[in-house]
Amino acid sequence: MNRFLLLTAALLCGCSTVLETGDTLERAITPPDGVNYAVTRPEGGFRLDVSDGRFASKVELLAVRKSRTRGGFTQVQFDLRNTSFLRQTANFGFEWIDAAGSVTEGQSGWSPTPLEPGQITTVTATALRSDSAECRLRILAR
């Protein structure tokens, strides 16, 4: 009888998720993470589209710089900073958009980037096609 109880307890432990940090606990009780976007504008500057306000309150987009390479291809740099007191992991991806608004190319998948508290990281995206004009950066919490 006791052995059955022990076995049940062991199975229950095996199926449960171990919460390791305060951040993990917070993630467990909030809705699923949404994807945030930062999109460059033809007239300069950028537009933010925030779906995950919790993550957006921890990682700040400091600056966006758009330039052209010597070969004439658009290059964009996004500076981000972890403004929280905990290590964050941001996952990045991006798409390129032409002047008409169509997606021309993009980086598939997600690039995980750990960010220590206070750390600034720069994400650089260089277009492969000459008609790629604006960059849409995808940001997803760990």
Partner: peptide
Amino acid sequence: IQDFANAGNAMLQEMVKSPAFDS
């Protein structure tokens, strides 16, 4: 499979922004 994508994307971006490839 995602490690290949991650490494490949990073390599590609580094290569196209290098002065040698750009010129």
